[in-house]
Structure formats: C-alpha cells, structure tokens
Design a protein around this nucleic acid. Sequence first.
DNA 1: GATTATATATATCAAACTGATATACATGCG
DNA 2: CGCATGTATATCAGTTTGATATATATAATC
Lengths: 182, 182
Amino acid sequence: MQKETICLGILSLGPRSGYEIKQMFQGPLSDFYSLSFGTIYPTLNKLQSGKFVSCKQHTQSKKPDKKVYTITKKGMAQMQENLLGDASSYIRSGNYGDQIKSEFFLLILFAKYLPKETLDTVLNERVLFLRQKFEQFKYDGPVPGDIKALREEKSISFIRGLAAALLDTGLNYMEKNREKLS
Amino acid sequence: MQKETICLGILSLGPRSGYEIKQMFQGPLSDFYSLSFGTIYPTLNKLQSGKFVSCKQHTQSKKPDKKVYTITKKGMAQMQENLLGDASSYIRSGNYGDQIKSEFFLLILFAKYLPKETLDTVLNERVLFLRQKFEQFKYDGPVPGDIKALREEKSISFIRGLAAALLDTGLNYMEKNREKLS
DNA sequence: GATTATATATATCAAACTGATATACATGCG
DNA sequence: CGCATGTATATCAGTTTGATATATATAATC
C-alpha cells in the first residue's frame, strides 16, 4: 500500500498533525505498521500540494507550531479508489504474509551462543514488555475523547481484540516453554 | 542486528548458498525476519573477503553454478562476539518490540471503505494462508535430512511451537469475530 | 511441438525508507 | 543551573528493498 493511501486513511479517522500520525505508529498501530518522520512529512506536503488534504497552522503557546491536516473530499475519493486497487492486488498477489523483522526472535534463534543469564534477561524483559502491551490492549476504562472515538471504530476494536488474544497466547507459551531453551 | 551477524548465524546451522539462505527467509523464518537478495549476496561476498566464511563453487549439471558458504572459526568467534553485543543493546535499548508491516491489517483498519465482497475475499484468503502455515508448523512427520537437523535445534522447536500456538489463536479469533467487521 | 510459467542460481541498481540529526522552545528534576 | 525529556517540523546520508538481467531446466498449457 502506498504511503499516500496510508496517511489519507489515518486522516480519514480525524484531523491530525504529522507528529500525531507518528505517535499512532508508535502506539496503537505499532504492532501492525509503521512509517518514519522521513516518510510522513514529505508525504503530507505532497498530499497538500495535490489538494488531497488541507492544512491549518496552529500557533500554540508554549509549544512549537503545529500543522493540522484534514482530508478533503478529493482525498477521500482518491483514498477509496486506491484502497480498492490495493485490496485487488493483495488478493491477486497470493502473498498474504506480513513483513516482520524481530530482533527478539533472532536472539532466540541463536540462543545457544548466549550465556544463560543474558538469555534469561532477554526473555524477562520481553515478557514484561508483552505484559504491558497486553494490559494496554485489554484496558477498556475511561480515555481521552479522541482515543475513545478511535476505539468505537469496528475495525479498531476487532484489531485490539486480536492483539490481546495473540499477546495472551504468546505470554502463556513463553512462560510454559522458556526452560526448554536452556 | 547487523546483516553480517544474521548471515553468520544462519551459516552456523550448516553450510548454505545465498539462494538457500533466502529460501529460509521465505520459508521457516518468514514470520520472524527477512533479508532480500540485494542484501544477502553482497553480505556473503564481504564475509568471504574478510575470511569469516569460506566458499566452494559447485558446478551442477542441469542447474546454475552454486556457491556454498561455510562459516570459519574466525566467523564463529566474530558472530558470538557480535551476538553478545546485540543482546546487551537489546536489553539496554528498552525497545523490545518487533518491526512489522502488515498489508492485511491496513486493509482491515480501513475495512469500512471496502465493498463487503472484497473484504470477505481478503479475509478468506488470509484464513486459508494462515491455515496452511499452521499445518506446516504443526507437521512433525518425515522431512529431508537438513530440515530434520534444523528441527532438532532447541531454539527452532521453541519458535515453531510458538508460531503454531499464535496461528491457532489468530485463526480462531478471525473465525469467531470476522462478522463484527461488516 | 511450441509457448509459457515456474524453479534454480547469482548479481546489480534505482527507488524507497529509515534513523539520525538539526532546529527550537518548554517543562521537570536534582 | 544544567541535563534530560517531550513537542513539533524538516532534511538527508546511508541502508534496504524489489525489480530486473542473465542463464538453464523442467513442468504445464495450448
């Protein structure tokens, strides 16, 4: 999927700045996709010059200026058209896997070359990290308005539920099988 | 982790060609890590000129020539040193997440802009794909000698078990919750 | 029997992307 | 009062990908 379509799709959920789009990739979307600043900012500028998004500059007191982007009608139409094409290529490609790079799994793969204590620390930190993630995905209490609106999206609640289920399985497996590594 | 350390680590499991390393990234390792030809071949050449691997050219009848790389003592020592450093940085970094780019999850995230039949096809293909993967990871019957040797590695059997558990959870969740998307 | 697609095998390179850095101001901490 | 951290945008060198080139064999399709 093109970076333009991804940014438009995120802006279709509500107006945001480039920095806030990056925060979504670091937070709720981090388990599924990510784009860096070096991609996001140029993409937003390109979308703006093509009139796919409009931009309002917010002069904030006590913080740097903020450029809040809103998707236009033209942007909405373009995004939906692109999305249809992407879904078709996805289906035709026959390549339904995800692109993953996991430093953790490389360390596990080569675990026999690591001292026992090092491996233990790696596993402990990973378990702690996954447990935190799990709590975040399960937490259903009060949140700020914009995040609440996001959670009411059917797609996001589906994804959150899946993430929680996978994290739970992963944690249980690690706790039951970690001694098999040493 | 540096690409050099990754290639050395894979070669520490047994001698292989660049093409066969890529096959591992497309097959058993595809859910955890991947490197492209454009990275693998130059890395092997660099490792060879640094004497971290040795290379035997196999002139095959009916197939192109094959360069089979074997890790040297120097390569083994370097790999273990690098691995220790990588484990330390992993622990120090506090960044225990994986780098993921999932076209599938983007399509789900923007599901409301897709026609129902398109979304259905995407979900069906993904389920079929995951089911195949699941069978591969669960399959414990007879396999060629080199793959059998790999499976006897503790780390690989740990990872295979985890992958199977995660795939099972993912499949169950998708089947039970997919109607919530439409 | 001819054409097309797929698989083995290495290598290269333009285009895309990342991650680090620059700039700038505010807040919190010891 | 200095130092680290957080907000915010922007750029760019270096890395990585994905496509392409080259070459041969087999399997499938027509």
